[in-house]
Structure formats: structure tokens, C-alpha cells
Amino acid sequence: MAEKTIMLCCAAGLSTSLLVSKMQKAAELNGIDVKIFATSAADADAKLDEEIPDVLMLGPQVRYLEGQFKDKLNIPVEVINMQDYGMMNGEEVFKRAVSLIHE
């Protein structure tokens, strides 16, 4: 079982799927056992009922949901840096997610 769980959320869950695979590679390179998964904004509440992530990272296109999730969750919630998201920089997004977990 993974030590930590990172949840990504975007409009449809598709663009973050590629980011998830790049983040998993970064985790493996750093020897960190982590579960990373993506979901659509429409399915986010259902996923949060199933999973208990340690951090929720939002795609820039759903930044409007940040306040709503921060109000109802007791975990770090942050919008993914737009440049890292656009470049699909899984390593940087992974590092940021881990740092949020440890803050």
C-alpha cells in the first residue's frame, strides 16, 4: 500500500492522466511509494468519498473550485502551476504535492 495519495482534478480528467504518469515516474526515480490518480471535476466528490488523498491538486482550468474544496476538505488543496501543467512537468508537480503534504 502506498505511503501517500495524491489526487489530481481537471475539467475532464484526461489531461491530468498524462501528468499522473509523469508524476509516477518522478516518484519512482525518487524511491517514493505513492498513489497518484486523476479525476474529472464532475466526479471529484464521488472520488473523495472513495479515496482519502493526502493532497488535492487542481488543474488550472478548474481553479474556480479551489475555495470550495478548501472549505470542505482537511487536506492541502492547490492549483497546479500553469507553466508546469502546460509543459506536463510531472517532476515539479510531484515535488510540489509532496511539499504540501509535509507542510
Rank of each mutant, 00 (worst) to 15 (best):
F94C: 03
E92G: 10
L65A: 12
V62E: 14
N74W: 06
D71T: 05
G59P: 00
A26S: 12
D45S: 10
S17T: 07
A11H: 05
E51G: 04
G90H: 01
I80N: 00
E92A: 15
V62Q: 12
P53N: 11
Q24P: 02
M87F: 11
D84A: 13
K70M: 05
L18F: 15
P60N: 02
L100E: 08
Q83Y: 11
D45I: 07
N30F: 13
N74A: 09
K70C: 13
P76V: 00
L58W: 01
P60A: 10
N81S: 09
M87W: 04
F69I: 02
Q68M: 13
E28C: 01
I36R: 06
E66S: 09
G59I: 01
A46Y: 08
Y85M: 01
A44K: 00
L100R: 13
P53I: 03
K95H: 15
M88K: 07
E103L: 11
A44Q: 09
V62G: 06
V20S: 09
M23I: 09
L65T: 09
I32T: 15
D84K: 10
S17G: 14
G90S: 07
S21N: 14
Q68D: 14
M88Y: 14
M82H: 10
N81R: 07
R63H: 08
V79T: 08
A44W: 00
K47V: 11
P76R: 08
I52L: 15
L100F: 10
R63C: 11
Q68V: 04
Q61I: 03
M7D: 01
K72M: 14
I101Y: 08
Q24R: 09
A27E: 04
L19V: 14
K35E: 09
A11V: 03
P53T: 02
M23R: 06
E66Y: 01
Q83N: 10
D45F: 10
M88I: 13
I101V: 10
L48K: 06
V77I: 06
A26V: 10
A27Q: 04
S40Y: 05
S40W: 12
A42R: 02
P60T: 12
V77Y: 03
F94D: 03
T5Y: 11
L18M: 15
D84E: 07
P53D: 14
E50I: 13
I52R: 15
Q24S: 12
T16A: 09
T16R: 04
L100S: 06
E3N: 15
F94Q: 03
A42E: 05
I101W: 14
A41V: 07
C9V: 06
L19D: 01
D33Y: 08
L58C: 11
E50G: 08
F69L: 00
A12C: 12
A11E: 05
D45T: 12
I80W: 05
G67P: 03
I32N: 12
I6E: 07
R96V: 11
C10M: 00
N30P: 02
L65W: 00
L73Q: 00
I6C: 06
A97Y: 01
G86D: 14
V77C: 03
N30Q: 15
S40H: 05
L29Q: 15
